[in-house]
Design a protein around this nucleic acid. Structure first.
Ligand code: ZN
Ligand code: ZN
Length: 195
DNA sequence: GATCAAGGCCAC
DNA sequence: GTGGCCTTGATC
């Protein structure tokens, strides 16, 4: 079997290279030259078409979020906990809960900060990716990250991320050390892999 | 040059 | 209002 490589995306910005053998359950239609997986839309569980406004999401939810921002839409809902699921065909039923889900899942229009996050992640995970087979424990990750930090000591260690304010449905700008962010990020990465 | 994500456009 | 597709600009 020819060794075809394709991109596999988990949640945020983690990218890994895997062979078809390793994910045979996901490659039924493997005639295509390169198959891209962005996972499911974190808002509606439809097939995600890429990273949009910071999260993996489908074209529809991307457009919904964009319009809501541009038009300064205010939505309302009595229940505030409606299910947003493409498979249940209720994605467009409640705009408020769709909007709320977008926010809760981390959608943000602030491309500057998203780009900043991406750069930080790319830096932090570059050594992780290139030495993937060596990364068996958290300690190794930390060690590699420290090495990485030393190599890039000239760049700022501070990154600006956005934290969701649950009460107001808005985002607060938070400054944190890239090390802290990396650890939180790695934790989530591990939990994703266990599924 | 390839890839990615953002905005724009438009049929429905 | 919705969502698929296209163009654009930045980054790799
Ligand atoms: Zn969606
Ligand atoms: Zn609702």
């Amino acid at each position: 079997m020819a060794k075809k490589i394709f991109k596999y995306k988990i949640d945020s910005e983690i990218q890994e290279q895997k062979t078809f053998d390793q994910v045979s359950n996901k490659t039924e239609a493997s005639n295509e030259e390169d198959v891209k997986f962005y996972g499911d839309c974190k808002v509606c569980n439809d097939k995600a078409t890429g990273m949009h406004y910071g999260i993996s999401s489908c074209e529809a939810c991307r457009t919904f979020f964009k319009r809501a921002i541009i038009n300064h839409k205010k939505y309302h809902c009595r229940h505030k906990n409606c299910t947003i699921d493409k498979r249940q065909n209720n994605v467009t039923k409640c705009k408020y809960c769709r909007w709320k889900t977008c926010l809760n899942m981390g959608m943000s229009l602030n491309i500057g900060k998203i780009a900043c996050m991406r750069n930080s992640i790319n830096k932090a995970t570059s050594s992780l990716r290139s030495n993937a087979h060596n990364l068996k424990s958290k300690d190794t990750i930390e060690l590699n990250h420290k090495n990485n930090e030393q190599k890039e000591s000239e760049s700022s260690d501070n990154i600006n991320i956005q934290k969701l304010d649950e009460n107001h449905g808005s985002f607060d700008s938070v400054n944190c050390k890239s090390k802290d962010f990396f650890h939180a990020y790695y934790k989530e990465f591990q939990s994703q892999k266990k599924e």
